[in-house]
Design a protein around this nucleic acid. Sequence first.
DNA 1: CTTGGCTGACCGACTGTTCGGTCATATATT
DNA 2: AATATATGACCGAACAGTCGGTCAGCCAAG
Lengths: 201, 201
Amino acid sequence: MTPLQKDPAKADAIIRAAIQIFARDGLEKGKIADIAVEAGIGKGTVYEYFSSKDEIFHAITETIMGDMIDASEKLYSMQLGPYDKLRTLIRMNTELVFEMGDSVLIMTEIWAQGARAIRRGEHTSVPLSTGVNRIRDLVINILKAGVMAHEFREMNYDGVATLCLAFVDGFVFQFMLNDDKEAFDLALIEGIQSFMKGLEP
Amino acid sequence: MTPLQKDPAKADAIIRAAIQIFARDGLEKGKIADIAVEAGIGKGTVYEYFSSKDEIFHAITETIMGDMIDASEKLYSMQLGPYDKLRTLIRMNTELVFEMGDSVLIMTEIWAQGARAIRRGEHTSVPLSTGVNRIRDLVINILKAGVMAHEFREMNYDGVATLCLAFVDGFVFQFMLNDDKEAFDLALIEGIQSFMKGLEP
DNA sequence: CTTGGCTGACCGACTGTTCGGTCATATATT
DNA sequence: AATATATGACCGAACAGTCGGTCAGCCAAG
């Protein structure tokens, strides 16, 4: 949370180690002690950089979401037609998430955690939502541009944007239980083709 | 695990209570003591019916997956064309999962747990996989019938089946953070329409 | 000498599981 | 019918292990 003075590289090392450990053992079962060992520092030092386990969760979420948003915005600003832009965005994000490998497990749990927080009325402090909405906005803009350019059919933008994000999450979800990269690639090609066909005029 | 003599209604009550508590507090933070209170029995009695917390997870998974499989198989055996059958299967499952409400949070965590078990090499004891595969088989059969009847285009069955399951998971995932039922319905209609259009010849 | 980043032994709260005992009910005996 | 006996479901206090977080001191640098 607090911008740390100290050694920012060490904060980074802690985050990386935490991702390792939490992915392997789960958010609750993952121990601070193990994170410290993985990061090659003492347990107490972890608390010099993060004030609690929760804050580490928070930092991990921002790190991972940040990567996705950066990649998406970079792609968005490229010179590409809406059709190709959307196709690439979906493919890129899906592969990005898939290749996060074990981090996916963390995001899955953090997602459930966020959903619980929302159900409890704590609509604040769910950085997930803001991140997802950022990408959703990009998608909607691409869709609108595509309709304008007659590359896409008329549509309900919210519905299709949801479908689009659902595609990414759902696809990765399917392969969490079966990380056969080859099958993933095949399915992804067919899936994107089918999805894009659904948007044709 | 063991088929219990004793009062089966009580085992059921425990499962129901456990779903409540785990959905609210999470798989790890949900306490056996709270489950007992919710079920209106003593803490010790829980262990007369289930030998461990893990076994309760297991039972919950089978209960929920069982419901989904039953509904899917029932639909599958109905007299309907492939196009309508697939459309209905997707819609039904998506709504079923959405309406599980808080149980979705449990399934999400169990999914991550299962993925971890698989990564650890314990390919057994992941009832999730068998359940998912059961439904996937139904989908593939419907797709094949549809291609045969020229209701669907030629396709890679595995890829589209994955897309189909991804649709359900992903859609619900999107609405975990935003349980606006009206928006959900709208998006679902548009999503299914778009998806089905992608399968047309 | 002083500063402050670093450390790990330690503490205390927490919770899954156990187990000896209670009690309602069923069965046997008179 | 009334009483004695046996059964096993039920209970919750106690236990034992676990872990997040703290803090008193160490050590390297200046």
